[in-house]
């Protein structure tokens, strides 16, 4: 990870958590940031209001998607010198398993970072990291100091 400028003053857990808390929808669903060994993992603690299928029960697919999208954006904030939040251009979500009513975790990897666009892959899991419940592949528009995007 490069030393961040602009949106983050320091690349540590509390700076990133307070940044995430400023995103109202991330705070609404309850995204928590965990920074360990220079790697970012996000946690979505289970809450009843995240349920999308009450009879199974399972988390709402939209919540899982929003969580993955938020993790992708936070990873981009960590890795690029951004002045503005990256904007999603498109995302593609594969739902692999039903999202149980328990805590969910996610990580994102920047597959390719161009001058204006980054391609990001993110995965969410619950009890077992080797059994992901959903994956996201997305393109994000970067608004960097040296780019015209945004």
């Amino acid at each position: 990870m490069s030393a961040p400028t602009g949106l983050l003053s320091k690349l540590d857990q509390s700076s990133l958590q307070s940044f995430a808390d400023q995103i109202p929808y991330a705070k609404f669903i309850g995204v928590e940031v965990q920074m360990a060994g220079g790697e970012l993992t996000c946690k979505l603690p289970f809450k009843d209001m995240l349920i999308g299928n009450p009879s199974l029960p399972a988390l709402h697919g939209g919540v899982v998607s929003a969580f993955l999208e938020t993790v992708a954006i936070l990873q981009l904030i960590c890795d690029i010198e951004a002045d503005h939040l990256p904007k999603p251009i498109n995302i593609s979500i594969d739902y692999l398993r039903s999202a149980k009513p328990v805590n969910t975790y996610a990580r994102a990897v920047i597959t390719k970072q161009g001058r204006r666009v980054a391609n990001v892959h993110a995965e969410a899991w619950q009890a077992d990291k080797t059994r992901p419940i959903a994956t996201l592949q997305g393109h994000f528009l970067l608004a960097r100091r040296d780019a015209a995007g945004g």
Partner: peptide
């Protein structure tokens, strides 16, 4: 609703909330 904002600077709704709407 202010709770579904994704960008606090502009007040634009979070992409995830739009996704939730479209999924639902």
């Amino acid at each position: 609703n202010e709770q579904i904002i994704g960008n606090p600077e502009t007040g634009v709704v979070h992409g995830g909330a739009v996704t939730t709407l479209l999924d639902n």
